[in-house]
């Protein structure tokens, strides 16, 4: 029992650390990608190629003056960023970071908890995330903050529907809600046994899912909650110091987790082509698989940034039109199509 606890604690600790590390370096990557896409160099002064930039940014955030507006609700004002950070961190528990490791005669899974309602848990946690933004925006007692918070909640609720519906088609296909099982089903890939990634069977579902993921993470082109031109800073207008840092940081953690979920659901998770034909032992394959998963995640994080520095922001009515009038009907259509094909194939 104690061995089990220690193993889980190590796993939780390392996932926690890696999540923070990746989120910190996402801020650096964001600035670098932005710079490179605009023919600039980006931060390159702190250390070689500026790799210590996240440390410098963090230090700056911590040492900035902390202002809590007098007219704000102090308890909720502090609770907002905490909640945003907490919910962002919680979703990482469900991701299968790799296949099993066999040490001695013990089998260690590289997934902290393989809930049989995995996806539902992820959705639940992600939808609590909107409370962080709403509470923060409301507690600031500022009209810009409030408008940003209203936009954020309306947007996230609208897109959650389409996101959930797009997942249903996938669940019809896989027959399970557990992320671990969905990963395992996609094992093999091209090579010995032909087993395609889910994106091959669910291209439309993937498209809907990734669009909704952009909206859920409040990323461009759906970053209306912090629309600078209209709302100053949106829901975090009144925030300063590390509390602002937490909000920004939570966005990057969300991005990391969404990338992990997208990779797991649609792009085979820790599986890679020819994995069964290399003739390597189980543990080596597992480690390579974890590296491959992080490669996929990095690609999707890059994709998030790539889109951000390409497309301008949607107008609010366009955003709502897209969510309610296009994505939801499309997702429903996708469910019918998947169901029809599943019946015909049986």
């Amino acid at each position: 029992m104690s061995e089990f606890l220690i193993y889980k604690l190590i796993l939780v600790g390392s996932v926690f650390g890696i999540t923070l590390f990746v989120a910190a370096y996402s801020t650096y990557a964001e600035r670098k990608v932005a710079a490179f896409l605009q023919d600039r160099v980006g931060p390159d002064r702190a250390g070689p190629f500026g790799i210590f930039q996240p440390l410098a940014d963090g230090m700056k955030f911590i040492y900035k003056e902390e202002i809590i507006p007098v007219v704000s609700n102090k308890f909720l004002f502090v609770l907002g960023p905490c909640l945003a950070m907490l919910t962002a961190m919680m979703a990482g528990v469900l991701i299968p970071w790799g296949n099993t490791l066999i040490i001695g005669d013990q089998v260690y899974s590289l997934q902290i908890a393989d809930l049989n309602v995995g996806i539902l848990y992820v959705f639940g946690v992600v939808s609590i995330g909107v409370y962080g933004i709403m509470i923060g925006g409301w507690a600031s007692n500022n009209k810009f903050s409030l408008l940003g918070a209203i936009r954020a909640s309306a947007q996230m609720i609208s897109y959650e529907i389409a996101m959930g519906l797009s997942i249903i088609a996938l669940i019809i296909m896989t027959g399970t809600l557990s992320l671990g099982e969905i990963s395992a089903q996609q094992a093999g890939g091209v090579g010995g046994d032909w087993n395609m990634w889910n994106v091959v069977y669910q291209p439309l579902g993937f498209l809907i899912f990734i669009v909704c993921a952009f909206a859920e993470c409040n990323r461009t082109p759906f970053d209306l909650p912090e629309c600078e031109t209209e709302l100053v800073g949106g829901y975090h207008t009144e925030y300063s110091s590390m509390k602002l840092g937490f909000y920004l940081f939570a966005e990057y953690i969300n991005m990391f987790v969404s990338s992990a979920v997208i990779s797991t659901l649609y792009f085979g998770g820790y599986n890679f082509p020819f994995m069964n034909d290399l003739g390597l032992d189980h543990n080596t394959i597992s480690i390579i698989g974890t590296v491959v998963l992080f490669g996929k995640i990095s690609f999707f994080i890059f994709f998030f940034m790539w889109i951000r520095w390409t497309i301008p922001r949607f107008r609010y009515d366009q955003l709502m039109n897209l969510g309610w009038k296009i994505l939801i009907p499309l997702a429903v259509f996708n469910i019918f199509l998947t169901g029809l094909v599943m019946i015909l194939l049986k």
Binding site: V33, F36, L37, Q38, D39, R40, V41, W306, T310
Partner: peptide
């Protein structure tokens, strides 16, 4: 439109930097 935009930006990733 998004795809054509994305193609344009990725080209700039490999351009010589003006900095």
């Amino acid at each position: 439109a998004i795809l054509s935009g994305v193609a344009i930006t990725i080209k700039h990733l490999f351009r010589r930097k003006a900095t």
